[in-house]
Amino acid sequence: MTVPILFARDICVTIGSNEILKNVSLSLPKGSLKVLIGPSGAGKSTFLQTLNHLIPHDSGCLELNGKEINLNNKRELYAYRQQVGMIFQDFNLFDHLNALDNVAIALRKVKGVERQTAHNRAMQELKRVGLEDKATLYPAELSGGQKQRVAIARALAMDPTVLLLDEPTSALDPELIGEVLAVIRDLTRDGLTMVMATHQMDFARALAHEIVFMQDGEIIEQGSPEELLQEGTSSRTRDFCARLVTAIDDKR
């Protein structure tokens, strides 16, 4: 068996008397796309944020390429975070920097890449997400979909081995979702290892290698989309998706 790229073992997070995550473990083989689904409040977002230690866990451990990360060592933590890129629901582009500098800043200040080289690299990443003509625009001048694509370019510029995506299309207008999903689809084809929380079931069904269903801070089920979503199977995941669909139909 090959060593997974990223392995989270028995992650527990308690805030006050609330158990947000209860012994959540996840193993990410190279090149895989795992999709986290589940009702809101299930802990998907919290779990993703524990994976790069934006939220510290109370117990459990993180392993990158089979090596446990010592999260108390600041230097090791910062190096680890460079390896694990993150895409946020509300983009979090740096508002005072234009698209190009948003992508280049971490290259320059974290990796110490010289200005011109960093800009060239940033331009290359903006091209990859189809935004080379928006390089000089500021976040306030970009649409939601464009902002999220810049955010993806910013993460990719650091050459991450894993990308975490926290509902990357949830804050977008319906007509802008497609452009972001297209970029993510290209990344799966390039073989980037990713974990993504999403409600885009069609996307998950088509591209996920594995669907992970979470509820109340626990992983309830995981398996391939075929196993969990096929007609006739009785999985919690399928129930949830069916309810999701009815909810949408009811609204109509």
Partner: peptide, 9 residues
């Protein structure tokens, strides 16, 4: 958060 996620101190 975004800055930290990129590995900034």
């Amino acid at each position: 958060q975004a800055a930290s996620a990129l590995g900034m101190s």
